[in-house]
């Protein structure tokens, strides 16, 4: 069984890194806003918004759920679509 550290121990060690990452995001968003032209309709930007919503909820597995937001969907019937079992 792997020892899990106390949450306060983790926060003490990682607070400055978390603060730094939040600031980097804030500055990047400001940079985007200063740029000319719009980007609100860009699907990548919408995914960034969805990912940030995940950070703020309390459902756990955030890293996995953020990864899935930025992933193409998997369709179990892909083999039929590719007709891999048929001769060339």
């Amino acid at each position: 069984m792997i020892r899990q550290r106390a949450a306060m121990e983790i926060l003490n060690r990682e607070f400055l890194e978390i603060r730094c990452k939040v600031l980097e995001l804030a500055a990047a968003f400001d940079r985007l806003e200063r740029g000319s032209g719009g980007f609100d309709d860009d699907p990548r930007w919408r995914k960034v918004g969805e990912a940030i919503d995940v950070l703020r909820d309390d459902r756990g597995d955030r890293a996995e759920r953020v990864q899935l937001i930025f992933s193409r969907p998997y369709a179990p019937q892909w083999r039929d679509e590719f007709a891999l079992d048929r001769p060339e």
Binding site: Q67, F70, S71, R72, P73, Y74, A75, P76, W78
Partner: peptide, 12 residues
Amino acid sequence: EDKYQGTRMILD
């Protein structure tokens, strides 16, 4: 963005 789909295809 191709990792999840591709990994599942590989496992299949």
